[in-house]
Simulated scan of single mutants.
Amino acid sequence: MKIIRPDAETSARMARIRQKGTKIEAAVALMLRDLGLHYRRNVRKLPGSPDFANQSKRWAVFVHGCFWHHHAGCYRATVPKSNRRFWLNKFHDNKRRDARSVRLLQREGYRVVVIWECQAHRIRDKLTKILETGRVNP
């Protein structure tokens, strides 16, 4: 079965979805400041370009949208009915890339936290793990 790329209308609609500056990112930034944590945003020097990172303290935070990163068991992690194979491959590649980024950061001694879009109510709990010693799994 041949993989078909999305049509122009679908592609344009998907392109309008924000990649940066989302509500959940703003909430994470506010919480990091409330916890007194200093950070840089979208650090391209680090594997996966974490949404928030502190290189001297060696921690990184990824904020994942449940649809794009296909959060397991989440109602937002749907698969479009049209061109299903394309989307399944895309989600698989995204998850593999995310896991690789976390693994590489951990090898460099970073504590890594993944905040999922649907877990907005748990931001404080997840971010306080940055302050703990040892590594944090997503």
Rank of each mutant, 00 (worst) to 15 (best):
K2C: 01
K2Q: 08
I3V: 15
R5S: 07
P6T: 08
D7G: 13
D7F: 02
D7A: 08
A8L: 08
A8H: 12
E9S: 10
E9Q: 12
T10R: 14
T10W: 03
T10Q: 11
T10I: 14
A12Q: 15
R13S: 10
R13L: 09
M14V: 12
R16N: 09
I17C: 01
R18M: 05
R18H: 07
Q19A: 01
Q19T: 10
Q19S: 09
K20P: 02
G21H: 07
T22S: 12
E25Y: 03
A26L: 10
A26T: 08
A27I: 01
A27M: 15
A29Q: 12
L30E: 15
M31W: 08
L35S: 10
L35Q: 10
G36C: 06
L37D: 09
Y39Q: 13
Y39V: 10
R40K: 15
N42C: 03
N42W: 14
P47L: 06
S49M: 12
S49W: 02
S49T: 15
P50H: 08
P50D: 03
D51L: 08
D51A: 12
F52L: 10
A53G: 13
A53D: 13
A53S: 15
N54K: 08
Q55L: 11
K57M: 10
A60C: 14
V61D: 05
V61Q: 10
F62K: 12
F62I: 05
V63I: 13
V63A: 11
V63L: 12
H64P: 04
H64L: 03
C66S: 06
F67G: 03
F67D: 04
W68K: 00
H69G: 01
H71S: 06
A72C: 04
G73V: 14
G73F: 10
G73M: 04
G73S: 07
C74F: 05
Y75K: 12
A77W: 00
T78V: 13
V79G: 00
V79H: 00
P80F: 00
P80E: 00
S82C: 06
S82A: 11
S82Y: 07
N83H: 07
R84W: 01
R84L: 02
R84Y: 00
F86L: 09
W87T: 00
L88V: 09
N89K: 04
N89G: 02
N89E: 08
K90Y: 05
F91H: 04
F91Y: 06
H92R: 15
H92P: 03
D93F: 05
D93L: 08
D93H: 13
D93W: 06
D93K: 15
K95N: 09
R96F: 05
R96G: 00
R97K: 15
D98W: 04
D98G: 03
D98T: 02
R103D: 11
L105C: 04
Q106Y: 02
Q106M: 11
R107D: 05
E108R: 14
E108A: 09
G109M: 10
R111V: 00
V113Q: 03
V114S: 06
V114Q: 07
E117R: 09
E117N: 06
E117A: 05
E117M: 10
C118K: 03
Q119E: 15
A120N: 07
R122M: 07
R122V: 07
I123D: 01
R124L: 04
R124H: 11
D125K: 12
K126T: 05
K126C: 04
K126W: 01
L127R: 14
L127K: 13
T128M: 14
I130W: 09
L131D: 01
E132I: 02
T133A: 06
T133C: 01
T133R: 13
G134M: 11
P138H: 03
